[in-house]
Simulated scan of single mutants.
Amino acid sequence: MKFENALIVGSGPGLSASLARLFAANDIDVSLAARSTAKLIELCEETGATAVQCDASDEKDVERLFKTLAAQGKLPDLVVYNAGGYTRGPVTDLDLNAVRDTLKSTAFGALVVAQQAAKVMLDKGRGALLFTGASAGVKGYAQSAPFAMGKFALRGLCQSLARELAPSNIHVAHFVIDGCIYQPERGSPFDDLDTTLHAEEIAKTYFEIAKQDRSAWTWEVELRPFSENF
Protein backbone atom coordinates (compact mmCIF):
# COMPACT_ATOMS: atom_id res chain seq x y z
CA MET A 1 0.00 0.00 0.00
CA LYS A 2 1.33 3.41 -0.97
CA PHE A 3 0.45 6.48 1.08
CA GLU A 4 0.02 10.12 0.17
CA ASN A 5 -0.92 11.87 3.42
CA ALA A 6 -0.03 10.91 6.97
CA LEU A 7 -1.39 12.24 10.24
CA ILE A 8 0.47 11.73 13.52
CA VAL A 9 -1.67 12.50 16.57
CA GLY A 10 0.10 13.25 19.83
CA SER A 11 3.19 14.60 18.11
CA GLY A 12 6.37 15.62 19.85
CA PRO A 13 10.02 14.57 20.08
CA GLY A 14 11.01 10.92 20.08
CA LEU A 15 8.87 8.41 18.20
CA SER A 16 6.54 10.94 16.55
CA ALA A 17 9.51 12.92 15.24
CA SER A 18 11.16 9.76 13.89
CA LEU A 19 7.93 8.77 12.17
CA ALA A 20 7.56 12.23 10.63
CA ARG A 21 11.11 12.12 9.26
CA LEU A 22 10.66 8.64 7.83
CA PHE A 23 7.31 9.40 6.21
CA ALA A 24 8.62 12.64 4.71
CA ALA A 25 11.68 10.82 3.35
CA ASN A 26 9.25 8.51 1.53
CA ASP A 27 7.43 11.41 -0.15
CA ILE A 28 4.44 11.33 2.18
CA ASP A 29 2.91 14.67 3.15
CA VAL A 30 2.89 14.79 6.96
CA SER A 31 0.49 16.55 9.33
CA LEU A 32 1.26 16.72 13.03
CA ALA A 33 -1.44 17.15 15.68
CA ALA A 34 -0.67 18.13 19.26
CA ARG A 35 -2.12 20.13 22.12
CA SER A 36 0.78 22.54 21.76
CA THR A 37 2.36 23.12 18.35
CA ALA A 38 5.17 25.40 19.53
CA LYS A 39 7.37 22.36 20.19
CA LEU A 40 6.91 21.22 16.57
CA ILE A 41 8.33 24.28 14.78
CA GLU A 42 11.80 22.83 14.14
CA LEU A 43 10.41 19.44 13.12
CA CYS A 44 8.06 21.10 10.64
CA GLU A 45 10.93 23.09 9.17
CA GLU A 46 13.00 19.92 8.88
CA THR A 47 10.34 17.69 7.33
CA GLY A 48 7.98 20.09 5.61
CA ALA A 49 5.19 18.89 7.88
CA THR A 50 2.20 20.98 8.89
CA ALA A 51 1.28 21.32 12.58
CA VAL A 52 -2.31 21.61 13.77
CA GLN A 53 -3.37 22.27 17.36
CA CYS A 54 -5.67 19.54 18.62
CA ASP A 55 -6.65 17.91 21.90
CA ALA A 56 -7.32 14.33 20.81
CA SER A 57 -9.59 13.69 23.79
CA ASP A 58 -11.95 16.47 22.66
CA GLU A 59 -14.25 15.27 19.86
CA LYS A 60 -14.93 18.83 18.68
CA ASP A 61 -11.20 19.47 18.37
CA VAL A 62 -10.76 16.29 16.36
CA GLU A 63 -13.64 17.21 14.07
CA ARG A 64 -11.98 20.59 13.48
CA LEU A 65 -8.67 18.85 12.80
CA PHE A 66 -10.14 16.71 10.03
CA LYS A 67 -12.03 19.68 8.55
CA THR A 68 -8.75 21.59 8.46
CA LEU A 69 -7.00 18.70 6.72
CA ALA A 70 -9.86 18.43 4.22
CA ALA A 71 -9.58 22.14 3.41
CA GLN A 72 -5.83 21.70 2.85
CA GLY A 73 -6.32 18.64 0.64
CA LYS A 74 -4.47 16.51 3.20
CA LEU A 75 -7.03 14.00 4.42
CA PRO A 76 -4.90 11.08 5.64
CA ASP A 77 -4.64 7.56 4.32
CA LEU A 78 -2.13 6.79 7.09
CA VAL A 79 -2.85 7.72 10.72
CA VAL A 80 -0.69 7.11 13.78
CA TYR A 81 -2.22 7.57 17.22
CA ASN A 82 0.66 8.30 19.56
CA ALA A 83 -1.18 10.31 22.22
CA GLY A 84 -1.63 9.16 25.78
CA GLY A 85 -1.55 10.08 29.43
CA TYR A 86 0.20 8.68 32.45
CA THR A 87 -0.48 8.82 36.15
CA ARG A 88 0.45 6.31 38.81
CA GLY A 89 0.38 5.67 42.54
CA PRO A 90 -1.28 3.50 45.18
CA VAL A 91 -4.95 2.94 44.35
CA THR A 92 -5.99 4.60 47.61
CA ASP A 93 -4.13 7.80 46.71
CA LEU A 94 -5.05 8.22 43.04
CA ASP A 95 -6.33 11.61 41.91
CA LEU A 96 -9.48 10.56 40.07
CA ASN A 97 -9.50 13.68 37.92
CA ALA A 98 -5.99 12.80 36.73
CA VAL A 99 -7.14 9.23 36.11
CA ARG A 100 -10.06 10.49 34.02
CA ASP A 101 -7.70 12.63 31.93
CA THR A 102 -5.39 9.64 31.42
CA LEU A 103 -8.23 7.47 30.18
CA LYS A 104 -9.54 10.20 27.89
CA SER A 105 -6.21 10.79 26.15
CA THR A 106 -5.08 7.16 26.03
CA ALA A 107 -8.30 5.38 25.05
CA PHE A 108 -11.23 7.70 24.35
CA GLY A 109 -9.12 9.97 22.16
CA ALA A 110 -8.00 6.95 20.13
CA LEU A 111 -11.63 6.11 19.43
CA VAL A 112 -12.47 9.70 18.46
CA VAL A 113 -9.56 9.88 16.02
CA ALA A 114 -10.31 6.40 14.67
CA GLN A 115 -13.92 7.38 14.01
CA GLN A 116 -12.93 10.39 11.91
CA ALA A 117 -10.11 8.54 10.16
CA ALA A 118 -12.33 5.56 9.33
CA LYS A 119 -14.85 7.84 7.60
CA VAL A 120 -12.06 9.20 5.42
CA MET A 121 -10.53 5.80 4.66
CA LEU A 122 -13.84 4.10 3.94
CA ASP A 123 -14.47 6.84 1.39
CA LYS A 124 -11.00 6.37 -0.09
CA GLY A 125 -11.35 2.58 -0.07
CA ARG A 126 -8.02 2.07 1.69
CA GLY A 127 -5.84 3.20 4.56
CA ALA A 128 -3.85 2.25 7.63
CA LEU A 129 -4.47 3.05 11.30
CA LEU A 130 -1.54 2.49 13.67
CA PHE A 131 -1.80 2.76 17.46
CA THR A 132 0.99 3.01 20.02
CA GLY A 133 0.38 0.66 22.93
CA ALA A 134 2.55 -0.54 25.79
CA SER A 135 3.31 -3.63 27.82
CA ALA A 136 0.82 -2.20 30.32
CA GLY A 137 -1.84 -3.11 27.77
CA VAL A 138 -1.21 -6.83 28.25
CA LYS A 139 -0.15 -6.91 31.92
CA GLY A 140 -1.14 -4.53 34.69
CA TYR A 141 1.71 -3.41 36.93
CA ALA A 142 1.37 -2.51 40.60
CA GLN A 143 0.50 1.13 41.28
CA SER A 144 -0.12 1.69 37.58
CA ALA A 145 -3.86 1.05 37.34
CA PRO A 146 -4.76 4.15 35.24
CA PHE A 147 -2.12 3.41 32.62
CA ALA A 148 -3.12 -0.26 32.47
CA MET A 149 -6.80 0.66 32.15
CA GLY A 150 -6.09 3.03 29.27
CA LYS A 151 -3.76 0.72 27.39
CA PHE A 152 -5.97 -2.36 27.87
CA ALA A 153 -8.86 -0.33 26.44
CA LEU A 154 -6.69 0.81 23.53
CA ARG A 155 -5.71 -2.76 22.71
CA GLY A 156 -9.34 -3.87 22.77
CA LEU A 157 -10.30 -0.97 20.52
CA CYS A 158 -7.60 -1.91 18.01
CA GLN A 159 -8.60 -5.57 17.94
CA SER A 160 -12.22 -4.61 17.35
CA LEU A 161 -11.31 -2.09 14.63
CA ALA A 162 -9.03 -4.57 12.89
CA ARG A 163 -11.86 -7.08 12.60
CA GLU A 164 -14.37 -4.47 11.50
CA LEU A 165 -12.29 -2.51 9.01
CA ALA A 166 -9.99 -5.11 7.42
CA PRO A 167 -12.70 -6.27 4.96
CA SER A 168 -12.88 -2.67 3.75
CA ASN A 169 -9.15 -2.61 2.92
CA ILE A 170 -8.19 -0.64 6.06
CA HIS A 171 -5.23 -2.05 7.94
CA VAL A 172 -5.36 -1.57 11.73
CA ALA A 173 -2.26 -2.41 13.78
CA HIS A 174 -1.43 -2.15 17.49
CA PHE A 175 2.17 -1.84 18.67
CA VAL A 176 3.14 -3.06 22.13
CA ILE A 177 6.17 -0.99 23.14
CA ASP A 178 7.75 -3.11 25.87
CA GLY A 179 10.43 -0.96 27.44
CA CYS A 180 11.72 2.61 27.65
CA ILE A 181 12.36 4.64 24.52
CA TYR A 182 15.83 6.17 24.35
CA GLN A 183 15.66 9.77 25.58
CA PRO A 184 19.08 10.69 27.02
CA GLU A 185 17.89 14.10 28.18
CA ARG A 186 15.69 12.34 30.77
CA GLY A 187 18.62 10.55 32.42
CA SER A 188 18.50 7.01 33.77
CA PRO A 189 17.02 4.59 32.68
CA PHE A 190 16.21 6.38 29.42
CA ASP A 191 19.86 7.12 28.55
CA ASP A 192 21.15 3.55 28.21
CA LEU A 193 21.61 2.59 24.56
CA ASP A 194 21.51 -1.13 25.33
CA THR A 195 18.38 -1.28 27.48
CA THR A 196 16.12 1.11 25.56
CA LEU A 197 14.22 1.04 22.29
CA HIS A 198 15.48 3.48 19.67
CA ALA A 199 12.77 5.67 18.16
CA GLU A 200 14.08 5.56 14.61
CA GLU A 201 14.06 1.75 14.68
CA ILE A 202 10.52 1.64 16.07
CA ALA A 203 9.47 3.99 13.26
CA LYS A 204 10.90 1.64 10.64
CA THR A 205 8.78 -1.20 12.00
CA TYR A 206 5.65 0.94 11.99
CA PHE A 207 6.19 1.83 8.36
CA GLU A 208 6.95 -1.73 7.28
CA ILE A 209 3.77 -2.96 8.98
CA ALA A 210 1.75 -0.20 7.33
CA LYS A 211 3.06 -1.22 3.89
CA GLN A 212 2.28 -4.94 4.27
CA ASP A 213 0.44 -6.62 1.45
CA ARG A 214 -3.15 -7.24 2.49
CA SER A 215 -2.68 -10.97 1.95
CA ALA A 216 -0.53 -11.02 5.11
CA TRP A 217 -1.53 -8.26 7.51
CA THR A 218 -0.29 -8.02 11.09
CA TRP A 219 -2.77 -6.64 13.64
CA GLU A 220 -0.33 -6.58 16.57
CA VAL A 221 3.41 -6.57 17.07
CA GLU A 222 5.55 -6.39 20.23
CA LEU A 223 8.82 -4.46 20.24
CA ARG A 224 11.44 -4.66 22.98
CA PRO A 225 15.21 -4.26 23.33
CA PHE A 226 17.23 -7.46 23.36
CA SER A 227 17.95 -7.02 27.08
CA GLU A 228 14.29 -6.69 28.16
CA ASN A 229 12.74 -9.51 30.19
CA PHE A 230 9.25 -10.64 29.22
Results as ranks from 00 to 15, higher is better:
Glu63Trp: 02
Leu65Asn: 12
Gln212Asp: 08
Phe3Gly: 05
Asp58Arg: 08
Ser36Phe: 00
Phe3Asn: 00
Ile209Leu: 05
Gln212Tyr: 06
Ser16Gln: 06
Glu220Ile: 09
Asp93Trp: 10
Ala128His: 03
Ser57Trp: 10
Arg88Glu: 06
Leu165Asp: 00
Asn5Met: 02
Thr102Gly: 03
Gln143Met: 11
Val62Pro: 01
Gly125Arg: 02
Leu129Gly: 10
Ala83Phe: 04
Phe230Tyr: 11
Arg186Glu: 03
Leu43Gln: 12
Phe3Gln: 11
Pro225Ala: 01
Leu7Ile: 06
Ser18Tyr: 02
Met1Thr: 13
Ala83Ser: 15
Ser11Ala: 15
Val112Thr: 13
Ala114Gly: 11
Val113Ala: 04
Arg64Ser: 15
Ser160Leu: 07
Leu197Ser: 02
Asp213Gln: 11
Ala162Leu: 04
Val176Lys: 01
Ser135Asn: 13
Ala162Asn: 12
Leu22Val: 03
Ser215Leu: 12
Lys39Ala: 13
Gln116Ile: 04
Leu32Gln: 12
Thr92Asp: 09
Gly133Leu: 04
Pro225Asn: 06
Val113Glu: 02
Asp27Tyr: 03
Val30Lys: 08
Leu40Cys: 02
Ser135Gln: 15
Asp93Thr: 15
Gly179Glu: 00
Glu201Arg: 15
Asp55Ala: 13
Val138Tyr: 00
Val99Met: 00
Arg163Ile: 03
Ala153Pro: 06
Ala117Leu: 11
